[in-house]
């Protein structure tokens, strides 16, 4: 990571934006500051002059803050899916693997619910939805393959433990990926 965000000019600019946006919810303010910091980093400004130019391009802290406060006002267009729905999707997906092992019917219902919520939500890109789906479907596919291919007499405690870990970890990884993506 470069040192842009520790540059005193950048720090002073971000502090000014933070002061002017004191009325914003903390989460929204943090997001704005992260976006501005990322903009400066991605634009590759280095040295005082370039950084000064990049900050001038962003505009007065007060102007940026005013626009953030204005966007916070209700616009009449309701958020399509709140953070609650995103978290519910991730929790259902994360739990589906273990539930499938404990009770296939309950697990199947939970997994299907998670996938319906996932594909109906606009917050994730197609690639993230596909990854989430793969993480959820991996467990039933693995169990099915295990049943079809393995000789039942050869399934010992080690195989069972491996199966348990697999059905715990893979959907959880998918859930974590979705949560992180939704927060961005």
């Amino acid at each position: 990571m470069n040192t842009t965000d520790r540059h005193p000019l950048v720090a002073a600019y971000l502090d000014a934006v933070a002061r002017e946006t004191a009325e914003l919810p903390a989460e929204r303010r943090a997001e704005l500051l992260a976006d501005l910091r990322e903009h400066i980093e991605v634009s590759g400004a280095e040295g005082d002059d370039q950084i000064r130019a990049a900050l001038a391009g962003l505009g007065e802290p007060r102007t940026v803050a005013a626009s953030a406060l204005a966007e916070e006002a209700p616009t009449g267009r309701a958020p399509v899916s709140g953070p609650v729905r995103g978290r519910l999707t991730a929790v259902l997906l994360g739990a589906s693997g273990v539930l499938l092992l404990l009770n296939p019917w309950v697990g199947a219902v939970v997994l299907i619910a998670a996938l319906v919520l996932l594909w109906g939500a606009p917050r994730w890109t197609g690639r993230q939805k596909a990854l989430g789906t793969a993480a959820g479907v991996a467990v039933p596919v693995a169990v099915l393959l295990g049943v079809l291919l393995a000789d039942a007499s050869r399934i010992g405690i080690v195989e069972l433990l491996l199966m348990l870990v697999f059905s715990l970890v893979v959907p959880l990884l998918g859930a974590v990926m979705l949560l992180r993506a939704a927060r961005r």
Binding site: N2, L36, S67
Partner: peptide, 30 residues
């Protein structure tokens, strides 16, 4: 006129589900 004002707009578009975001690695830089 002030490029920084785009980010609050993008944030609202994301909350309203009109755009989705994804962090991707870049060949150069962050």
């Amino acid at each position: 006129t002030s490029q920084g004002t785009i980010y609050p707009l993008l944030s609202r578009l994301r909350r309203e589900g009109l755009v989705a975001t994804e962090l991707r690695d870049s060949p150069s830089g962050p």
